[in-house]
């Protein structure tokens, strides 16, 4: 078992407007991208982020070796119970996910 943070070149997250967060997982090469894209289970990501899997959008971008996830914020940016104004810390949850490589 290896975590995504070790397999990826970088993992970042950021607001995409006040109501969405987007997570970008960048890979250094085609092989590591393909391996993780095949092994990474979308419902597992939804579970870590505590979002409904139906609301989690996934984009596998072959040309730039990126897996991208976007989801509606459960707490709107800057509202009373928001803890992370820019949404940049959600990335840590995805980076810490262990995946079983084939």
């Amino acid at each position: 078992m290896t975590d995504i943070g070790q397999l990826a070149r970088s993992v970042r997250s950021k607001n995409a407007g006040p109501f969405w967060v987007t997570v970008d997982v960048f890979f250094a090469d085609q092989q590591s991208y393909m391996d993780v894209a095949a092994a990474l289970d979308t419902p597992a990501v939804a579970s870590v982020l505590k979002v409904d899997v139906a609301d989690l959008k996934r984009f596998d971008l072959d040309d730039i070796h990126v897996i991208k996830f976007s989801f509606p914020r459960s707490v709107v940016q800057g509202s009373r119970f928001d803890r992370d104004m820019h949404g940049a810390q959600y990335a840590n949850l995805v980076a810490a996910m262990n995946i079983q490589m084939a």
Binding site: N15, T22, D24, K57, F59, L61, I64, V66, K68, S70
Partner: peptide
């Protein structure tokens, strides 16, 4: 080409 195309990811829920 990478730095430019990757910018479509930035703060966009949909990169396309």
């Amino acid at each position: 080409p990478y730095s430019v195309s990757a910018h479509m990811l930035y703060e966009n829920a949909d990169p396309i």
